[in-house]
Write a protein that binds this DNA or RNA. Structure first.
Length: 588
RNA sequence: GGGGUCGUAGUUCAGUUGGUUAGAACGCCGGCCUGUCACGCCGGAGGUCGCGAGUUCGAGUCUCGUCGGCCCCGCCA
């Protein structure tokens, strides 16, 4: 190319008037008036209007042929626009380039969709032509935002004394947790590496090595089904610190979030964040990641129905279950159809059903009201929050948390439907005191709720063998507007405790040795007390960018079925490659 | 693995009870236009109605299957 840019397309202002400049970029929009031709030239910095006049016989005919997404270089003088032609919507809107020279750097086929934020295209098309989608201002903004947050993150943790250390991608498959992506070994046929679900064990080993404060912005891999906020490969901000307790880890995270919003967006986020025990979150909001931008709390009404004639509830009460209610004044006039839809939603969540009744003008009506006694009517009214007319939704289940979870989902759905959520509000809080273990019905054993390296709370250690389900973990999750954006814990750092934990998880000493022997051995050489946390980086960026999906903040994401539409992955491989790996494909 | 939803022009969508030649907007192509900026005006081209069966005199429309996108449940320590 002859004409190399002297400025970007977002740069020129009135003070450049009179200068001769060169711009490079893409034809964003062209307006041919028969005589004068205007072209908006675009690059990632912005747009600048360039003007071709018919009097310039050398370039004018070539300008006539320019089309969308052609790549051009223009040389010319910056001129002030006539006052009536200033475009206030454009940062460069007070000036334009009177083109003297034009160089066509490349032509473009007509793109499958327009490179404009205001033009919609289906997501599969956008993913297939991801390079064009990424050329659009919105995704460019998202990627640049992601870059700024990543840069801030490195600067912040470095200044806090954290060392960035890379950990391997070719790692060891582990029995607990998510399904691993496996990588076959050519040099060791029949053996496999696993891509890391997280650098968990490596960062703990780094603590044993004395690195004290470690961080990394790192890819992690989990072979599980996708969601709008879950991709098979995703990025974590991973931290680990030695000689710390919960307050130290949570403290540095709070400073990080506060500084992030202050330095990047000049926004004040108050710290420390509230800490809500897991139990309380479930009781009040029916979620371990409640959205606190709106109220609407659950009410336990189990006692109201002690000795009830209403069979469904009677059965639940007898089995020691839970009955909870959600009283929604704003939904008091919901139609039969709307309530039926809520019922279907509950069924889809795996709930037994949704009971309802309405408090209208001082009395109960509709739904299950006719099956309840006058005493129950009064007791229910007394226990529910004071309100006028309201729709009351009731969920009963033998399993307390199952019922609460369903009510929690209803709470969220109703909040969205009824517009309770103020999008401008940012609510951060911690969930703490998680159960260490939960019982896995399928495997008939306890499994770690967080991961098997999480330390139990000191005061609960004596319950490890007698009441494992009551033991609380030294774990904490950071919730941002109802999204889990970080989770971590204080770890086990002695071999004895780690062995005890594996024993509780019904992992045999042999298996523990085979899978985690290196970690337990390391613990025998002066492992310091340590703990850490990991952020879902994509999620954090998604929430800050106000994007609808994690895919909008990842340059090359996969579809919901884990397919790369642009490059067509996964794909079959050459039989020769398989042979080298000692792998044969079993036909279905 | 299960549930929901969508699939019609290059794109975003409309398409009545199953009935003549499947429409609109944007984009694209051609013409006109010297101050537009999501320019304007005139004209034009453009369709395997995702794919495959079936029902029917007749299917974009109904049925079954299948493929794909998206959302949810399960799953995600």
């Amino acid at each position: 190319m002859k004409l190399k840019r002297t400025h970007t397309c977002g740069e020129l202002r009135v003070e450049h008037v009179g200068q001769t400049v060169i711009l490079n970029g893409w034809v964003d929009n062209w307006r041919d008036h028969g005589g004068i031709i205007f072209i908006d030239l675009r690059d990632r910095y912005g747009k600048t209007q360039v003007v071709f006049y018919p009097e310039n016989g050398a370039v004018y005919p070539a300008a006539k042929k320019l089309r969308s997404e052609y790549v051009i270089a223009v040389k010319g003088e910056v001129q002030a626009r006539p006052s009536e032609a200033v475009n206030p919507k454009l940062a460069t809107g007070e000036v334009e380039i009177r083109v003297e020279e034009l160089e066509l750097l490349n032509v473009s086929r007509v793109p499958p969709f327009e490179i404009k934020d205001y033009v919609d295209a289906s997501e599969d098309l956008r993913l297939q032509y991801r390079y064009l989608d990424l050329r659009r201002p919105r995704l460019q903004r998202n990627m640049i935002l992601r870059h700024r947050i990543a840069q801030f993150t490195r600067r912040f943790f470095s200044e806090e004394g954290f060392i960035e250390i890379e950990t391997p991608f070719l790692t060891k498959s582990t029995p607990e947790g998510a399904r691993d992506f496996l990588v076959p070994s050519r040099l060791h046929q029949g053996k496999f590496y696993a891509l890391p679900q997280s650098p968990q064990t490596y960062k703990q080993i780094l603590m044993v090595s004395g690195f004290d404060k470690y961080y990394q912005i790192v890819k992690c891999f989990r072979d599980e089904d996708l969601r709008k906020d879950r991709q098979p490969e995703f990025t974590q901000i991973d931290l680990e610190m030695s000689f710390v307790d919960e307050d130290d880890v949570m403290g540095v995270v709070e400073r990080y979030i506060q500084q992030l919003f202050r330095q990047l967006f000049d926004e004040d986020i108050p710290i420390p964040f509230p800490r809500i025990p897991y139990r309380e979150a479930m009781e009040r909001y029916g979620s371990d990641k409640p959205d606190l931008r709106f109220d609407l709390e659950l009410t336990e009404v189990t006692d109201v129905f002690k000795g009830t004639e209403f069979k469904v509830f009677a059965k639940v009460v007898q089995s020691g279950g839970y009955i909870g209610a959600l009283s929604v004044p704003q939904a008091w006039d919901f139609s039969r159809k709307q309530i039926d839809q809520l019922g279907k939603y509950v069924e889809n969540l795996g709930g037994g059903g949704l009971a309802h009744m309405k408090w209208v003008d001082g009395r109960w009506e509709g739904g299950i009201s006719k099956f309840l006694s006058e005493k129950e009517h009064q007791a229910l009214k007394a226990v529910l929050p004071e309100a006028g007319n309201a729709l009351v939704l009731l969920v009963a289940d033998a399993h307390r948390e199952a019922a609460q979870g369903i009510l929690g989902n209803l709470r969220l759905r109703l909040a969205e439907e009824l517009g309770f959520i103020d999008k401008s509000v940012k609510k951060f809080h911690w969930i703490v005191d998680f159960p260490l273990l939960e019982y896995d019905e399928e495997e008939h054993r306890y499994v770690a709720r967080h991961h098997p390296f999480t330390s139990p709370k000191y005061e609960d250690i004596n319950k490890l063998e007698t009441h494992p389900e009551q033991v609380r973990a030294r774990a904490y999750d950071l919730i941002f507007n109802g999204n889990e954006i970080a989770g971590g814990s204080i770890r086990i750092h002695t071999r004895d405790m780690q062995e005890k934990m594996f024993q509780l998880l019904k992992i045999t000493p042999q298996e523990a040795e085979r899978k985690f022997g290196f970690l337990m051995e390391a613990f025998q050489y002066g492992a310091p007390p340590h703990g850490g946390i990991a952020f879902g980086f994509d999620r954090l960026v998604m929430l800050i960018a106000d994007a609808n999906s994690i895919r909008d903040v990842i340059a090359f994401p996969k579809t919901a079925s884990a397919v790369g539409l642009m490059e067509n992955t996964p794909s079959e491989v050459d039989p020769k490659q398989l042979k080298e790996l000692g792998i044969s494909i079993k036909n279905k």
